[in-house]
């Protein structure tokens, strides 16, 4: 089971991506929700808002404890800011991976952009990348592997327990990073190792966010949306 921190941000997008790999997922809002998690995704959103909610509800302490118990962490964009050991203009938050991050590294929304890159360790074919008011990773310390460097900054990196990406794989049709993180958590993601999930589109997350909370819970299961084969008896492939 993988959790997605559900305080603010693009939670549904990550839940949808993981379900496409047949991985059991759960939104995580409080300490009880951490039970049985192999990994936790800290999604995109506003890092100042997320940091404030993490600390007032003491969830930051739970994340740090779970990390030391072996739960793997992945931060996308704002999530990467929360996980960094050092920030250029402010005090760090969780400080669980030795990288230095500059917030709003590119400028305003007009500087948001899409790109692609080859990351042989993850995929044979180029991976689409979406940067939304993204931070920049300026440097990585000992014990941190750089997965993707672009010009003067690092876009993706990992340590044994933590993955960080300054872009948003959950906003693209590529499942490569979600597959990679699921494996990092010791899970066995299903589906073919294709670069792109052709059934994904930019509104796919909306099946989890219909107009009322009641409808959100009974949103159409992915099995009906996705024709591809999935092992429902053993969704985590363990």
């Amino acid at each position: 089971m993988i959790g997605v921190l559900d305080l603010q941000g693009d939670v549904f997008e990550h839940l949808d991506h993981m379900e496409r790999l047949g991985i059991a997922v759960r939104p995580v809002k409080q300490a009880e929700d951490f039970e049985g998690l192999a990994g936790l995704i800290l999604p995109g959103g506003e890092s100042t808002c997320l940091a404030r909610l993490l600390s007032v509800f003491d969830i930051d302490k739970v994340i740090i404890r779970k990390f030391h118990e072996g739960v793997k962490l992945w931060g996308t964009c704002a999530g990467a800011i929360l996980l960094a050991k050092s920030l250029t203009r402010e005090a760090p938050h969780l400080g669980l991976i030795d990288i230095e991050v500059e917030r709003n590294g590119f400028g305003s929304q007009l500087d948001s952009f899409a790109s692609e890159a080859s990351i042989p360790r993850l995929s044979q074919t180029p991976i689409p990348l979406t940067f939304i008011r993204a931070p920049k990773i300026l440097s990585a310390g000992k014990g941190v592997d750089v997965l993707l460097r672009m010009g003067d900054f690092i876009a993706a990196a990992e340590s044994p327990g933590v993955l960080v990406t300054i872009f948003h794989p959950e906003l693209t049709p590529s499942l490569a990073f979600h597959r990679y993180f699921a494996r990092k958590c010791g899970l066995r993601p299903g589906g073919e190792e294709t670069a792109i999930d052709p059934s994904w589109d930019k509104t796919s997350w909306m099946r989890l966010a219909r107009i009322t909370p009641m409808e959100r819970r009974s949103a159409e299961p992915l099995a009906k949306v996705l024709p591809q084969e999935m092992d429902h008896e053993n969704p985590e492939g363990i």
């Binding site: 559900d6 305080l7 603010q8 941000g9 693009d10 939670v11 549904f12 997008e13 995109g44 959103g45 506003e46 808002c49 964009c77 704002a78 929304q109 948001s112 952009f113 899409a114 979406t130 939304i132 008011r133 948003h168 906003l171 930019k202 997350w205 966010a209």
Partner: peptide
């Protein structure tokens, strides 16, 4: 346009 819609997605729950 897609990037602009996606920035709004990041604001969800806020």
């Amino acid at each position: 346009y897609e990037l602009n819609v996606q920035l709004a997605q990041m604001l969800k729950g806020g």
